[in-house]
Design a protein around this nucleic acid. Structure first.
Lengths: 161, 161
DNA sequence: CTCTATGCAAATCTTTTGCACGAAC
DNA sequence: GTTCGTGCAAAAGATTTGCATAGAG
């Protein structure tokens, strides 16, 4: 959690932010973009973005809903889905389907791949360079440009393999 | 329900299996394996396998159900799911999750990866060899064994790139 | 005030499961 | 005759949508 000096509680209902730090700045930035696009800035959106920026890992809609509800109990899952949809339309988040189970969402800005263990569910972050060979070959053989920001590879990790 | 002697095959009338053609031989081979494992040989299983061997492309459970129902109208989708499950357990078929939408199934023998265009939704089948570099590197750097048949690589195809 | 976002319930869509009956061996 | 497979209905899990209203600008 990136709390600024002195700050400790996230819910300051109607409080102007004099200085925001790290992730908070990004959250406000995205909210500004949403407002520019005719959208409104709401608490659920601010908290959802906070959750997305807090951990750059993959999280399901259900997990994100729980995270938001921890601060705003009455937020409905459909609101999370609608907001994730909107954020995806704006290019802020992307989602992937990893093996079975629900889709996972994460920031589009986190440009790294993930290896996801199908057995224990653990994830390993890997550099984009790991996909450079695949990218080159896909381009050469099929004219296909792979998306390095939207990548989750299932398999078995060192412990479960 | 069983066709047995006197039944009708769409492709040929002679089916006393002195020399069955390619796919049919494989279908009967798989059925033999199922019987060895204590399973029964049923019409729906034979027709489902026929559909899988007929086109080696990936097909959804719904498409496969329709294909089977074309010859056996009363087959229930749940039967298809159960049979696909069993075939997967035997290693005959595998399934992948391509972008949104339902899972797609295909023969394990024709295992291949998928490139999915994020713009037009088209898919490109690619040889396993395309993932060998990635597989080796994931193994070496992280002890991770990737499963190249269980996911799709997103990106932009030659037309949309 | 105007228009968007939300909560809620119900609908969709895909896949799974319990149960009784019929088929394969 | 015993065991397995199937049809049917209903459930389960994830996501979407219609609608009235609360809330942002």
């Amino acid at each position: 959690m990136s709390k600024g000096p002195g700050g400790h509680e996230p819910d300051h209902g109607d409080h102007t932010h004099p200085e925001v730090s790290g992730a908070d700045a990004s959250v406000e930035g995205v909210l500004a973009v949403m407002r520019e696009h005719g959208g409104r800035v709401t608490s659920s959106r601010r908290i959802l973005l906070g959750a997305l920026f807090a951990t750059r890992e993959h999280r399901t809609a259900e997990e994100l809903t729980a995270a938001v509800q921890a601060q705003l109990p009455d937020v409905h899952p459909s609101t999370i889905y609608r907001n994730l949809d909107e954020l995806e339309r704006l290019g802020v988040v992307v989602h992937s389907h990893i093996g079975h189970g629900p889709a996972t969402y994460h920031l589009a800005a986190s440009a790294h791949g993930h290896l996801v263990c199908e057995v224990c569910g653990s994830t390993v972050d890997v550099a984009d360079t790991m996909f450079s060979g695949l990218a080159r070959q896909a381009k050469a053989d099929h004219g296909f440009t792979i998306d390095p920001h939207h990548f989750a590879v299932p398999g078995r990790c060192a412990n479960c393999g």
